[in-house]
C-alpha cells in the first residue's frame, strides 16, 4: 500500500505536526503513515482524504498484489 500523504502535505506547506494536530493524532503517526510503516484505520484514512479534498483511493493506492487483485 502506497500513499501520497507526504506530497499532499508538502504541497500545502504543512508540517507533520500541523497535519497531526488537525487530525488529532501524534506527529509520529503521520510520519509512520507517510513512510508506509503504519496503515491507518478506515476512519482516519477517510479523515485524511477529506482534509485534502480527495477520495481515499486518490490518497492511498493498493499495489497490484494487494487484496482483491486480479
Amino acid at each position: 500500500m502506497q500513499n501520497d500523504v507526504r506530497k499532499l502535505r508538502e504541497d500545502r506547506f504543512l508540517s507533520q505536526g500541523d497535519l497531526a494536530k488537525h487530525l488529532r493524532v501524534s506527529r509520529q503517526t503521520i510520519n509512520a503513515i507517510e513512510t508506509g510503516k503504519y496503515l491507518p484505520s478506515l476512519p482516519l484514512a477517510m479523515a485524511i482524504g477529506r482534509y485534502f479534498g480527495r477520495a481515499i483511493e486518490e490518497v492511498f493506492r493498493d499495489d497490484e498484489h494487494g487484496l482483491g487483485a486480479q
Partner: peptide, 8 residues
Amino acid sequence: PVDERWEA
C-alpha cells in the same frame, strides 16, 4: 494511548 497507532 494518544491515537489509534499507539493503541495498536
